[in-house]
Simulated scan of single mutants.
Amino acid sequence: MIPPSETNTGSPPASNEEWAADWLPHLEDLAERLRRCARRTMSNAIDSSDLGSVSRPVSVGAGDTTFGIDAAAEAELGDWFEQRARLAPLSVLTEDAGWRHQGPDGADGTRDLPGFDHGGPRICVDPVDGTRHLMLDHRAAWAVIALAGPGEDIPHQRDALAACIQELPDSRARVARRLSARRGMGTELAEMDVSSGEILRSHPLHADDDNRLDHGYLPFFAFHPDLREEVARLAFAFFARIEEEEGAELAHCYDDQYICNAGQMALTALGTYRMIVDPRQFIADRLGLHAQTTKPYDVAGAILCVEEAGASITSLAGTELDFPWDVETPLSFAAFANGATRDRALPHLLAALEQYRP
């Protein structure tokens, strides 16, 4: 809950730096609320031997299917949004509801606003990225939150000022990780006790400087069965090139199909992944298929956290990955553990993409 003493007093932040500094604690508060909500929801389902209550689809939202655990997280986010909107106007995007705009009604409540032109922040949230892992208590999901300052229209990734991604671990975990970043100020890695929320340790996160293309994870993400054969062909062309031209030991190029784009990016910044390629939209375009792909809300917060740590993310054209924060834009991307790894790997990836034919 927002402390009763917190009221809408004083002027709004005057610069991008102030917006980021003032709002990052609120993003971290939301992330912690979503972590506790996910743990509570999963614990109740496990204790009652009813994972079906969290893993069944309950609706189709603006951007994706909403499962039981997503609905609980969206409700938690809705409470946070309403509490913040009592104090000052803001806009929030989620995959379930799209963009919503609210502000104070002058009577200790909130009112809907017609659009972005209210002078408050614009915030992009995926309350549970990696739903399919977490809802079956298989692997962690991540909450993904990004903030842009005031504006009159939909923000783009280049407008991100602050971000926070929070690990939502499975029931066996005792520690959860959180990455927080402000543009130009680096990334902080915090580890917390999942029961108490106590921060156990916290330090700046810096990507390593190793440019190796083996002895690590280098996945090509292929979530859908109808894309897997083609993604494998693309990956084979890439690995053949780095074996021949870079001397990579392919027996030590490991795969990992983590159904969580923010988690993939976090593992890249942490050095677990050397690179990750999500070519689903690239492949689907060439096959003439409609495929479930990465969307802006999946990765907006993760991109800023990862780049501020010194890892690198590009489009599959090798350019800056910029996009509108909406529920529709399909994305493909490549992420690299650092700039040196990108410089070795990207030419081979671009060549493999150029040579690819369905």
Rank of each mutant, 00 (worst) to 15 (best):
G247N: 09
A232Y: 03
I242P: 01
S180V: 02
F236L: 15
A222T: 03
R228Q: 14
L227P: 06
L179M: 10
V231A: 03
A237D: 13
A248L: 05
A190M: 06
D209L: 01
I199Y: 03
A248Q: 02
H224G: 06
D208I: 02
H203R: 13
H206M: 13
L234C: 15
G197M: 04
E229F: 05
R241W: 01
T187H: 05
R241T: 04
T187K: 01
V231W: 00
F238I: 03
V194W: 03
R241C: 03
V194H: 01
I242F: 06
E230Q: 15
E243P: 06
H215Y: 13
E191G: 00
R233L: 15
I242G: 03
L189F: 07
F236S: 15
L179P: 01
D208E: 09
F223K: 11
H203W: 10
F236I: 15
R212C: 12
A190P: 07
F223P: 00
F220M: 01
E188H: 06
F239I: 02
R178M: 09
E188R: 04
H215V: 10
L205K: 01
F223W: 04
F238L: 13
T187M: 00
L205D: 06
I199P: 00
L234I: 14
H206A: 14
R212K: 12
L227G: 04
G247W: 08
E244H: 07
A237V: 12
F236R: 14
L200Q: 13
E245R: 14
L213M: 10
D214C: 11
R178Y: 00
A248F: 10
E246K: 07
H206V: 07
L205W: 10
A240E: 14
R177N: 11
F221E: 01
H215K: 14
F221V: 11
R182M: 11
D209R: 14
E245G: 06
F236W: 10
I242Q: 00
F223Q: 12
D208R: 05
G216Y: 00
L234H: 10
D193R: 05
F221N: 02
D210E: 13
R233V: 15
E244T: 15
V194M: 02
D210G: 12
Y217C: 03
R228A: 14
A207H: 01
E230G: 06
A232M: 09
N211V: 00
R177L: 11
R201W: 09
G247E: 09
F220W: 01
P204T: 03
P219C: 11
D209G: 10
D210T: 07
R201F: 05
A222H: 01
V194R: 04
D208V: 04
L227D: 08
F239T: 12
R182K: 08
A232H: 08
L227W: 04
D193W: 07
S195A: 15
